[in-house]
């Protein structure tokens, strides 16, 4: 039997908004690119997202938010991930995040922010290139 490493991704939607078209399209594209995608549905609290990432041992987390609450919720998520020792997980974000907030989000440890209209190809490529190398 050979080793069969798969990339595990958590697509998570914090915030109360219900715009999941983007999250679902991205989830599907990553799945079709051969990854195992965990999607936990709408309205996840920062605690649920961090705990899911921990239990599911994901390599990558994609956060999607369109409600405008990213400035409140992302810091809490990143903080919880740190507390749980998940510093080697790559986190990217998507949705409606004004350009002037992007720097601030990156300072929190979010590696990339994809705006509306980003081709899924680019996100797939990004994930493939940024999966943490773990043993």
């Amino acid at each position: 039997m050979q080793t069969e490493r798969k990339i595990r991704v958590l697509i998570a939607k914090p915030g109360l908004d219900s715009h999941d078209r983007g999250a679902k399209v991205v989830a599907r594209a990553l799945r079709d690119a051969g990854m195992e995608v965990i999607y936990t549905g709408l309205r996840q609290t920062p605690e649920q997202i961090a705990e899911t990432a921990l239990q599911e041992d994901v390599d990558v987390i994609g956060l999607s938010i369109l409600s405008g609450a990213h400035k409140t919720l992302f810091p809490r998520i990143m903080d919880l991930l740190k507390k749980k020792g998940l510093t080697d997980v790559t986190v990217f974000a998507g949705g409606i995040i004004p350009e002037e907030d992007v720097e601030e989000m990156k300072k929190l440890g979010i590696k990339e922010v994809f705006g509306p209209g980003t081709p899924t190809e680019r996100i797939i490529k990004y994930v493939l290139e940024n999966v943490p190398k773990r043993t």
């Binding site: 989830a27 599907r28 990553l30 799945r31 079709d32 690119a33 051969g34 990854m35 195992e36 995608v37 965990i38 999607y39 936990t40 549905g41 996840q44 609290t45 605690e47 649920q48 705990e51 899911t52 239990q55 599911e56």
Partner: peptide
């Protein structure tokens, strides 16, 4: 690839 969605029904238990 796979889409793993069973967890969604149990998310409140995750914490």
């Amino acid at each position: 690839g796979a889409f793993l969605g069973d967890r969604i029904r149990m998310q409140e238990l995750s914490t």
